[in-house]
Write a protein that binds this DNA or RNA. Structure first.
Length: 131
DNA sequence: GCCAACGTTGGC
DNA sequence: GCCAACGTTGGC
């Protein structure tokens, strides 16, 4: 099982939208590095939803429930998406500031490259965020 | 509102 | 294939 962070602008699609939908296709990725991360996902992986913009915090978790498949919002098969199912909100949202000051989390890709919309976590990092 | 970081585009 | 110019994103 792998862990990931999915970045989203809450005015576009937010954690509460996922809570309402229960399940969604995570579409619209148009960056090769992010797409490659999507393609590396397998069912059972855990994703954390990060709100960019005014919030700048990780707010909740979701589970990958499909293999990656061609993003239906893009022509052809160049771009990929996965299906996600909502899990739980974090007991305590983790702000970007808290990540950057955390001894383990400060080096995660999200902290180093805030523009990458899909980024990996180690198991250890994922476990820290989940508790 | 500004700017740094990054990705993309296009001229050469 | 290189690199300057430009657009976009997101943190501050």
């Amino acid at each position: 099982m792998k862990y990931w962070i999915l970045k989203t602008e809450p005015s576009t699609y937010s954690w509460s939208d996922l809570v309402r939908d229960k399940k969604t296709a995570w579409t619209g990725i148009r960056n090769y590095q992010a797409r490659n991360n999507i393609r590396a996902m397998t069912p059972g992986d855990i994703c954390f939803i990060y709100h960019s913009g005014a919030e700048k915090q990780i707010v909740g978790s979701a589970k990958v429930v499909s293999a990656s498949y061609p993003d239906p919002t893009a022509p052809g098969e160049a771009w990929s998406c996965v299906d996600l199912e909502v899990l739980t909100p974090l007991k305590q949202p983790i702000t970007l500031a808290a990540i950057k000051s955390h001894p383990v989390l400060k080096d995660i890709t999200l902290a180093r490259n805030s523009r990458l919309s899909v980024s990996p976590l180690t198991e250890n990092e994922g476990a820290i965020i989940f508790r």
